[in-house]
Amino acid sequence: MKVTRKEVERIAALGRLELSEEQKREMEAHLSGMTEHFKMLDAVDTSSVPPTAHILDKVNVLRPDKAEPSFERDALLANAPERDGECYIVPRAVE
């Protein structure tokens, strides 16, 4: 299936990626090639097959509700691109 330029732009925006013109061209070809390959799936009859999201059949694994020490604030903030004392700095999100 041919993936169009418009779709490439839509998908890139969903992933918060900016693509150059050349990258968009490359991505059109790449996604078209991938979807072509994915046609292999159509050849498999799955009419009575349930999907598998996970190979384990576990559900709701719980652990004891016990308080444990958390991370040191400073250790976490050490990786912050921008910080102010005890907080991360981000641009204003609500006008």
Binding site: L41, T46, V49, P50, P51, T52, A53
Partner: peptide, 14 residues
């Protein structure tokens, strides 16, 4: 067409 289909084929492969 893709994710759900592949999840079903996954069951078969398994």
């Amino acid at each position: 067409a893709y994710y759900l289909k592949a999840s079903k084929v996954r069951t078969l492969i398994k």
